[in-house]
Simulated scan of single mutants.
Amino acid sequence: MDAITFRNGPVAMAGNLHLPVDFDPRGSYPAVVTVHPGGGVKEQTAGLYASKLAEQGFVALAHDASHQGESGGEPRFLEDPAARVEDVRAAVDHLQTLDYVDPERIGVLGICAGGGYAVNAAMTDHRVKAVTTVSAVNIGSAYRRGWYGSEPDSAGLPTLAAAAAQRTAEARGADAAYIPYVPVEPDENTPRDLVEAHDYYLTPRARHPHARNRKLFAKSVAKIYAFDAFHLVGELLTRPVLMVAGSEAGSLWHTTELHAALRGPKRLVLVEGGAHMDFYDVPKYVERTVSEAVPFFTEHLPKAPATPAGQG
């Protein structure tokens, strides 16, 4: 693994580039960008999937989001969906500059909100040839409609009013307000997936010093609530999409909505018994996902046919 930097406009992005076993810099490899969940960093589940893909012969790039982790961008701890999508495109830009990456064989794999961002980026960046989502979440829908998707979109109006008041207070000199990505103290009313998210992010299971469980409140929610990762997906996303999710995940509705909206090549893998967080690091579920993703990317990121001797 190589620690690298690349540019997303004015922002210096931090990434970890995972290279195949027996890597040859004179070779030509397929590559995959892995996109971390909201609140995550490249060293957690996105890095795990990148390492697994590298073991199977892919160049894989996991990066920290703009404004987060080791990447640059001010203000800090901003969750900006537009920037997150542009991060994916910038990662593809970087892969396009590497002599050992085949520029026609680049895919994206996103986990949780990273899955939504991966889909949204692939809709308009035709350099991305294939997409895999893992426990996908459309972050705008999740914030508006709740973890189970049972609320109307208008349920977020009180939060937007509070964010507007906080932004005015900050403009007048108040300290910035922050909210957590995952519950700091889950209780009996906390959805199972979010209890397990607490266990993942805030205990030694996967805790990382760069994943601070801290999101800038006023400026983040104003951007998140108006975002729809899957808007126009039926019309614009023509690339093949593999969707992996657990049957017991409270977030499953995001994957089924995406699957229903897609009109291009698609495959849904519903893993019985799996919950949302199982696919972050539980070996059984990670290996199942990798066993689906590797042949999917191999099929849809194929080598160009060799030119017969004496031709071309």
Score class of each variant (00 low, 15 high):
129 K>E: 11
77 F>T: 02
179 I>D: 03
237 L>C: 09
113 A>L: 00
296 F>K: 01
286 V>H: 02
259 H>Q: 14
158 P>C: 01
151 E>D: 13
95 L>E: 10
104 E>L: 11
137 V>C: 12
210 H>F: 05
269 V>G: 05
114 G>A: 03
52 K>Y: 11
38 G>Q: 00
78 L>C: 14
254 H>L: 08
215 K>C: 10
31 A>F: 12
242 L>E: 10
81 P>C: 06
266 K>M: 09
137 V>Y: 03
110 G>V: 00
71 S>P: 02
194 L>K: 13
243 M>Y: 06
12 A>R: 15
7 R>Q: 14
172 R>Y: 03
205 R>K: 12
85 V>R: 05
142 A>G: 08
264 G>D: 13
180 P>D: 04
88 V>P: 02
293 A>R: 11
312 G>I: 01
292 E>V: 09
33 V>D: 09
72 G>C: 09
152 P>L: 10
215 K>E: 12
169 A>P: 08
145 R>M: 11
267 R>P: 07
24 D>W: 11
218 A>K: 04
97 T>M: 12
109 L>A: 12
296 F>Q: 07
91 A>V: 06
108 V>H: 02
109 L>G: 01
209 P>Y: 07
48 L>C: 08
256 T>F: 01
11 V>R: 08
262 L>P: 15
207 R>T: 10
35 V>W: 04
246 G>T: 04
239 R>Q: 14
296 F>H: 08
167 R>V: 00
237 L>Q: 06
169 A>N: 07
53 L>A: 01
307 T>V: 15
166 Q>T: 09
23 F>R: 07
109 L>S: 11
157 L>N: 08
220 S>H: 06
284 K>D: 12
232 L>T: 12
42 K>G: 05
276 H>F: 07
78 L>A: 12
269 V>W: 10
167 R>Q: 10
5 T>D: 13
299 E>R: 14
223 K>H: 06
203 T>K: 06
90 A>Q: 05
13 M>A: 04
292 E>Q: 13
284 K>R: 15
204 P>C: 05
144 R>Y: 05
65 A>D: 10
23 F>N: 06
162 A>T: 13
124 T>Y: 13
243 M>L: 15
14 A>H: 14
160 L>V: 07
14 A>S: 14
54 A>W: 06
36 H>E: 03
44 Q>H: 04
167 R>S: 04
134 V>G: 02
198 H>V: 01
96 Q>G: 15
48 L>G: 15
186 P>G: 06
225 Y>S: 04
161 A>M: 15
270 L>H: 03
203 T>G: 11
13 M>Y: 00
29 Y>H: 11
70 E>Q: 14
196 E>N: 10
105 R>C: 13
120 N>P: 04
281 D>S: 14
306 A>N: 07
145 R>D: 02
244 V>W: 06
118 A>I: 03
201 Y>N: 00
84 R>H: 02
12 A>G: 14
302 P>S: 07
37 P>I: 00
203 T>H: 10
